[in-house]
Design a protein around this nucleic acid. Structure first.
Lengths: 217, 217
DNA sequence: ACCTGAACACCGTTCAAGT
DNA sequence: ACCTGAACACCGTTCAAGT
């Protein structure tokens, strides 16, 4: 590589790594050790490079996360989309949801960085699909953006809450114990059953309800 | 105070601070310098105590945040609740939403810690209200918990996304510029207008749609 | 009983110097 | 052109020693 660079007309010290290698290592690190363990220094160690070399390939850590996110998002496969607009919205949304649910840190990056404006073009098909389908039902572009945003709020919330909820229901034994039944009768009745009732996830069901509420026939 | 402690039968070095003082200082710090600036060390400096004294009053930083959150949540005033169950849900939810929207870091703590199980009893009235109202519409307790969770997802998502969205629409000038109109025609058409279309917030509207979708008559 | 500073094991980032 | 280590300005937390 160094030789090629030289014959390429480029001069100076040959690179020891590249943006692509950095992104691959970051993904390896997250998959192996978890999202919290992705630090600039650990990443450098993973690559066997100096702790500050990354800064020659990526602006800073935030930019790294954004690159990582877009790389991941661009790999979300576009499913068969149904003809019915509302069903199409459901299908497209579930595709984003399931992809993000597998990589909850992605949703975290997304929230932490504001909004979809940071998505690269390659990952925008779900957004386009939802907007287009809404317009197809007779709504204006402005209303369609609104519909998308509401769906987005719901989806982000579900993923983040789910991601941080304790896996096992047993983790916090005394749940709604010692509640005053006079003030909160229902919660007192539920008591320790809350985790049981609340754990079984039904994202698709809630999503359909939301869409039906947003787009009544 | 030290003297009283002594006459109290207590011995040893008199305390220089208390849990209440720590919580008050933390809130002062957040309100003045922002949520990101709340660190154990800055908090100690704010109080004029050693950087590690906090650990004698609060288990660790996470516990501090939870205490802070519950203190804040218990201060959410309970509004007049309408008789109609669905309207009652809207009113109660908007009360939580508005309180959390003013303190977005609270929503962050809440997500970061899983779920409502961490709420102290004093802050549970909105949860109780939503569950009770849903049961009143003829649903089971299990369905009511589901309704609450869906509302919670939507609310948390809205607050977190809103909190991290850039205040001014102008911050990222080239928005959906240079999109391929063949692949994403609607987004290409929207282009730089996205921030304009997407900024005007309508939480209450989306919430009502969600509730209508979840609880059809 | 309560407080303290030193210390540990980390962060992200800048920058002058080196190849 | 690219890489490096030292350095800066921080974190949260533990713990022995002090009052």
């Amino acid at each position: 590589v160094a030789q090629r660079s030289a014959s390429n007309g480029r001069t100076g010290r040959p690179p020891v790594t590249s943006r692509a290698e950095i992104l691959a290592a970051a993904r390896r690190l997250i998959d192996r050790d978890g999202w919290e363990k992705l630090t600039v220094r650990r990443l450098a160690a993973e690559l066997g490079i100096g702790p500050t070399t990354m800064y020659h390939h990526v602006r800073d850590k935030e930019a790294l996360l954004l690159l990582l996110l877009n790389e991941y998002a661009s790999q979300i496969p576009q499913p068969e989309l149904p003809g019915d607009p509302k069903e199409r919205i459901v299908t497209a949304t579930i595709a984003i949801h399931d992809a993000l649910a597998e990589w909850p840190w992605a949703a975290e990056v997304l929230t932490a960085n504001g909004f979809v404006g940071l998505f690269a073009a390659s990952s925008l098909w779900p957004v386009e699909t939802i907007i287009a389908a809404t317009v197809e039902t007779g709504r204006t572009l402005e209303q369609a953006v609104d519909v998308f945003r509401n769906i987005w709020f719901y989806t982000v919330g579900e993923i983040l809450v789910q991601a941080h909820s304790p896996r096992r229901a047993i983790e916090r034994d005394p749940f709604f114990t010692d509640l005053d039944p006079a003030k909160t009768p229902h919660l007192a009745a539920i008591g320790n059953d809350w985790p049981l009732l609340a754990t079984h996830p039904n994202y698709a069901g809630g999503l359909k309800s939301l869409i039906n509420g947003l787009l009544p026939d």
